[in-house]
Simulated scan of single mutants.
Amino acid sequence: MYNRKGIQSHILSFIDFSKASTFLDIGCGKGYDLIEISNRAYKEAKLYGVDVKTNLIEFAKMQTERDCRFTFDVYDVEDGLKFEDESIDVIVSCNVLECIKNKSKLLHEIHRVLKPDGKIIMAHFDWDTQIFNAFDKNLYRKLITTYNDWQQPWMNDCDAWMGRKISGIFNETGLFNGTMFTYVVTESEYKEGFRGYSLINEEFKALVEKGIIENTEFELFKDQITQIEKTGHYFYSINLYTYVGQKK
């Protein structure tokens, strides 16, 4: 998995830690964002994380087992959020909304559990903004599009354009006052710990293992990217769009 410290700093920059004491991360994964929030928040802050993947929640629990501020739970937020009305100051979420079928229902749930003037920070990659500098444009386009449209088993929905749609989805509810922000990931190095490297060596490779793309296509593209990197022409980029909203 790639290092997402830059994205984490971008998302957390919208939080006023002097005014918040309860935090919820929807799709918290291994809990890294909540752990960083705990380093900046009041010592008495309450930090909640939910995710549909049991293995990720177990890892998060292991990382924070000696800190009673943390509570992690496994469930599908399609069924609602297991929190009392007006109980959370700040909700953060990254790359989750595209996986949700009933997006409006989730946003209404977010509105319900947020305290008056509570804040939602929802970020999402727009997967179709992913670009590589590549030799073979047709092969590059095929692999990128195939990955972008891959609905994995744990996803209830899949939309490569979710980043560009977030603002409209929130506006349609009329529940929040919000602003959009853009964070652009740009990389000129192809090595472990970077998003482009992870995409090829973990996610494209998974497409091969699932029989979705041919191994020959994968190996050819990987070899071409390696050659480009050696000449100093390697480039990868993707846009992250973040909606920062306040409960009406």
Results as ranks from 00 to 15, higher is better:
160 A>M: 09
168 G>H: 00
138 N>D: 06
199 L>I: 15
81 L>D: 01
181 F>K: 05
242 T>H: 06
242 T>M: 09
238 I>T: 11
88 I>P: 01
56 L>D: 03
175 L>M: 08
24 L>Q: 04
213 I>P: 02
77 V>Q: 02
79 D>G: 12
74 V>P: 01
50 V>F: 07
212 I>S: 07
224 Q>P: 01
123 A>C: 14
210 K>F: 10
56 L>W: 13
77 V>G: 03
218 F>L: 00
225 I>A: 00
68 C>T: 14
87 S>V: 09
184 V>C: 04
211 G>Y: 08
54 T>Y: 10
204 F>P: 01
158 C>G: 02
51 D>F: 10
152 Q>I: 09
112 R>Y: 09
99 C>S: 13
116 P>G: 06
38 S>V: 04
225 I>H: 01
56 L>E: 09
204 F>R: 05
43 K>P: 01
79 D>M: 08
153 P>L: 10
52 V>R: 07
27 G>D: 00
174 G>C: 09
36 E>I: 11
102 N>S: 14
201 N>R: 09
120 I>K: 04
4 R>G: 05
64 T>G: 09
143 L>K: 04
172 E>H: 14
102 N>L: 03
242 T>G: 06
17 F>T: 08
9 S>G: 09
181 F>V: 00
61 K>D: 02
24 L>Y: 03
203 E>D: 12
39 N>S: 15
71 T>W: 00
202 E>Y: 13
89 D>H: 12
244 V>T: 08
20 A>D: 02
153 P>F: 05
179 T>I: 03
25 D>K: 03
120 I>V: 14
182 T>V: 11
143 L>I: 14
74 V>H: 02
69 R>S: 14
241 Y>A: 06
242 T>C: 08
166 I>V: 15
32 Y>I: 11
135 F>L: 13
29 G>V: 07
40 R>I: 06
39 N>F: 02
86 E>F: 10
126 D>H: 13
124 H>I: 07
213 I>H: 05
69 R>Q: 11
191 K>L: 11
222 K>Y: 10
136 D>P: 11
176 F>W: 04
166 I>K: 05
162 M>H: 05
170 F>P: 04
49 G>Y: 07
153 P>T: 12
88 I>D: 03
